[in-house]
Design a protein around this nucleic acid. Structure first.
Ligand SMILES: NC(=O)c1ccc[n+]([C@@H]2O[C@H](COP(=O)([O-])OP(=O)(O)OC[C@H]3O[C@@H](n4cnc5c(N)ncnc54)[C@H](O)[C@@H]3O)[C@@H](O)[C@H]2O)c1
Ligand SMILES: NC(=O)c1ccc[n+]([C@@H]2O[C@H](COP(=O)([O-])OP(=O)(O)OC[C@H]3O[C@@H](n4cnc5c(N)ncnc54)[C@H](O)[C@@H]3O)[C@@H](O)[C@H]2O)c1
Lengths: 221, 221
DNA sequence: CTAATTTCGTGCATTTTATCTCGAATGACG
DNA sequence: CGTCATTCGAGATAAAATGCACGAAATTAG
């Protein structure tokens, strides 16, 4: 059976909460692979992620049988399976708009995360930044962006510009055919038909920590 | 009644999901304040955040009565109320360890987010970075960190160093009395008794977008 | 003043999610 | 080769979260 098959469970809708957890499983599996672990059981995987073992088994069971009794899950196989479920079978081309501090950090980070994400384009307006090389890519001018988008397909546009420029940048990307935006600016990007927008929110974590320090944040088991 | 009071609902435990949403409400309220909106109703707040209006009313009702019929919620008052619930009444001192690209971005960002977070300390090991000024603060040497932590109280330690240095940095911070860590490195920080650890996860968002592009991510209504 | 209308707050039904439980499969070991 | 311990898979059950529906409060209009 291929990792993608659903083990005959057609029609069953996967809980959204399960889908949200899959990337976390994947990251932990990558860590295990780096440590040369061949297999992992639901209990230790759960401990690493702060989840109950039954939670993990149930999540994975929605997609078919991946584990073996008395052994657990094969790390490599499970990585392939989850990548397949998440649609990481094909490559995704990334463009980062705004190569300031955050843009640079993201550019360097993007190449590490997963080989399915390929950084293709870095764009800025600042003449001092245009032409420099970041993460082995030249920074291009914002003026050329529409033309660049017509030449190569960009799947995900990462917006790392100041708040007031974000909406304009988003529009240019969408006009150029980009269907998924990852917005790091504080701007509020309104919903655009047919475009998936994900907002990064580094501040939420700080709020959580503050609340923890101030009293008792309700613990998730 | 003060915004902190619980309207007589003592003993009722607040759903974890509600607590997770409060920071999002707060961010949206900040946006509205910047646009000089005085009031907002549950419906428009819900639309902006992709939530049902009833969800928002229910969440807020756990903490008491904040709204008025036919008017909605006073933005300023609701900000104060949520800040109070989240423990943002006192100030929190931040230290950023690792002033590379990400550290710099976070330093500049931290000062914008909320005046309750005060960036106090920037630390690095690189001699070329030590002594430079970022976000109006001098970058100090990592060697001095233990001493610096004994001089001033740091509430939240933000870790923006390479993966292999992260565990050491975490230990030094904890030994220096820091009780909350915000980890941006890919390292897995094991649970430390009495310390709250929050892991940033920029990659999850990209996985989500990839899955969306590859098929149909289960929509949250 | 009264009626119409908006929008809140909340009890309760529904839906979704997490956890418990246990049979079955697997491999270790004598 | 049979027994035993372990770990999975998944149905049943419990818990949590969501969303509906309606009464109450507040504002506007006539
Ligand atoms: N979401 C988060 O958690 C988080 C964290 C840090 C920073 N940020 C945000 O990310 C953004 C960037 O932060 P930064 O620290 O890198 O700022 P920065 O000023 O260092 O970088 C912004 C870059 O965008 C470029 N730029 C400006 N207008 C542009 C345009 N119209 N098109 C293309 N490029 C343009 C600038 O030349 C600059 O290089 C800010 O909005 C900041 O608030 C968000
Ligand atoms: N979580 C995310 O989404 C995300 C995004 C981008 C980067 N990152 C991670 O953040 C980290 C930093 O990224 P970056 O792009 O800023 O890298 P960078 O190399 O530009 O910066 C790292 C800085 O840490 C300093 N440093 C190294 N060892 C140190 C130590 N022991 N004590 C103090 N400082 C030390 C270095 O001198 C350097 O200035 C990396 O681990 C990267 O993977 C995470």
């Amino acid at each position: 059976m291929t990792p993608t098959s659903n083990n005959g469970k057609t029609g069953i809708s996967i809980p959204a909460a399960t889908m949200e957890r899959l990337p976390r499983y994947l990251m932990q599996l990558f860590r295990l692979r780096r440590k040369n672990c061949d297999s992992v059981n639901s209990q230790s995987l759960g401990e690493a992620l702060g989840l109950k073992d039954t939670q993990i088994r149930k999540d994975l069971s929605y997609f078919g049988v991946f584990g073996k009794a008395r052994y657990g899950y094969n790390v490599e196989y499970l990585i392939k399976a989850i990548e397949s479920i998440l649609g990481l079978t094909s490559e995704y081309n990334l463009a980062i708009i705004g190569v300031g501090n955050l843009g640079k950090a993201l550019a360097n980070y993007a190449v590490q995360v997963n080989s399915n994400f390929v950084l293709k384009l870095l764009v800025d307006t600042n003449p001092e930044i245009i032409g420099t090389t970041v993460a082995d890519l030249p920074v291009r001018s914002m003026d050329d962006l529409p033309q660049l988008l017509s030449t190569q397909e960009i799947h995900i546009g990462i917006i790392a510009v100041p708040e007031k420029a974000a909406v304009d940048v988003a529009n240019i990307l969408v006009e150029g055919g980009v269907r998924a935006l990852y917005n790091f600016s504080q701007a509020e990007l309104h919903h655009i038909e047919g475009v998936f927008i994900e907002n990064a929110s580094i501040s939420y974590g700080v709020y959580k920590l503050a609340h923890h320090l101030s009293g008792s944040w309700p613990r998730k088991k």
